[in-house]
Design a protein around this nucleic acid. Structure first.
Lengths: 116, 116
DNA sequence: GATATATTAAACGTTTTGGTTAAATGAACT
DNA sequence: AGTTCATTTAACCAAAACGTTTAATATATC
């Protein structure tokens, strides 16, 4: 019980950072870009109409959320997708899936699930 | 093609608001609370260690993101879950599912998917 | 060694976020 | 009518987010 609360709390911290990271279009775009393969910071910045420094900061947010893995390669930083934390966000959302998929089954499922 | 870009842009606005709404523990908790059935503002505020006014603002954020539907019932506001927009966030995440589920299949699937 | 390139750091300004307390609104109860 | 209850609004504050421009840093290249 205590265990569960502690676990939830740390998950919360993760989820805060993850959802926050996903809440900006440039950062979501960056994730889409690296999903096509590793990209340098400049490559990631190119499509966006903000300064390179701004993009650099966005990438830091993604990195801090654990969504972007960066590897130094000479003077270039190769950014690649680290998707694992997304599964946490996905997992959180999954609990609500029944609520938009089938409204009637949803209630049943939920009640059963919560009273084992 | 143009259609897709326009669509994506409006989705972006939604996703910004949705992910932003999910990025705070009190707001996520509120959604969990209303998932158990409609709740008044006071009921939603009770478990949290902030003022009622603060919770009221959080609920407004959820409402603006379309995640909370509020219905006036006398002097009480009945808040109930509006899960539909969550499917948008879910949909966005789904594209990355393969990246954390099976790393090798992921690349294949992705490449196939992107080059029909 | 000098210079160009890639990226971050610093300093700064504006807007948004998240919280507070106190007052306002509006429905319900006596 | 007056009071209590549920909730929001207003005014305010501190911190964070997001952007800029101008250093600084470190690696390539000539």
């Amino acid at each position: 019980m205590v265990n569960r609360m502690v676990e939830q709390q740390s998950d919360d911290l993760d989820l805060d950072a993850i959802f926050q990271a996903l809440a900006h279009p440039i950062r979501r775009a960056a994730l889409e870009q690296v999903a096509d393969g590793p990209k340098s910071v400049s490559e990631l910045a190119a499509p966006h109409d903000v300064s390179l420094a701004a993009v650099s900061k966005h990438l830091r947010v993604l990195e801090d959320a654990g969504l972007l893995a960066v590897e130094q390669d000479g003077r270039v930083r190769r950014c690649h997708l680290a998707a694992a934390p997304l599964s946490e966000a996905f997992g959180w959302l999954t609990r609500y899936r029944v609520f938009w998929e089938d409204r009637f089954d949803a209630l049943e499922d939920h009640l059963e699930e919560d009273t084992p």
